Simulated assay, not measured.
Amino acid sequence: MKTAILASLVAAAAAFAPAAKEDASNSALKMSFENELGAQAPLGFWDPLGMATSQEKFDRLRLVEIKHGRIAMVGVVGYLVTYAGIRFPGAEDIPAGFGAFDAVPPSVWAQVFFTILLMEGFNTDQIGGEFIGDFRNGALDFGWDSFDEATKLSKRAIELNQGRAAQMGLLGLMVHEKLGNVDILLPPSFISI
């Protein structure tokens, strides 16, 4: 018993011990992304697995993060809309959430697959983009070119943070549905339109 108490005290004290010095190349590499878009308080640049070892890898991870965030934003809206009972004509009997996977016909899944394949084919490596995640391909602007650089940076940061929040929100909706308490999270009176 005394040994266990002593071991826990040593472990607690070790948590407050000064960290070992890293070699200069490793810490310089970690610090090179501290000023990137999305490195915000309270975490700053957060890469616990050390995956961003070069600018190319960081750019690829940022592109994937933006894509996943955009998909999650659409997913959260789609989940809430279908949970509210709104359906396309002809799809009134398809349930919301995970129940839709079995109810959607294979022909619709094929259309979804080929649509994603087509979109990924046209946006491969976001050729000609002004920044990472710019999929305009010179076609659509929606007034983006009329903004100053500070506004553009602010809007990109907002999108990145909303994408991060949507990823967590969609994960939360999925977990609550599997737990069977999504009705507590989204009561029908809250969703009624």
Rank of each mutant, 00 (worst) to 15 (best):
D148W: 08
P188F: 03
M31P: 11
G50T: 05
A20M: 13
A150W: 07
N161T: 11
L118M: 15
P105L: 05
R156L: 10
A20C: 06
E159S: 11
K67F: 01
D93R: 06
L185E: 00
A103Q: 07
W46C: 02
V10H: 08
L171C: 03
L170T: 00
A91H: 13
A139N: 09
E159L: 15
F45K: 07
K155I: 09
I86S: 09
L117I: 10
F142P: 13
K2N: 08
A7H: 13
A166Q: 02
G163V: 03
Q162F: 10
Q126S: 08
Y83K: 08
T82G: 07
T3G: 15
A84V: 11
S27E: 14
Q111H: 10
V77R: 02
M119K: 11
P106V: 15
L170P: 01
D183E: 08
D102S: 10
K67D: 04
D59V: 14
L80S: 01
I158T: 09
S189H: 04
R60D: 05
D141T: 04
E65G: 09
G69H: 01
M174I: 01
G180Y: 02
L160K: 07
R136E: 11
L179C: 04
A19F: 13
I94E: 00
L173M: 10
G129Y: 01
A96I: 01
G172C: 01
T82P: 13
E149T: 12
A20E: 11
G129V: 00
S32M: 12
L153V: 03
I158F: 14
V112D: 05
K30I: 02
V10N: 05
A41L: 15
L43D: 02
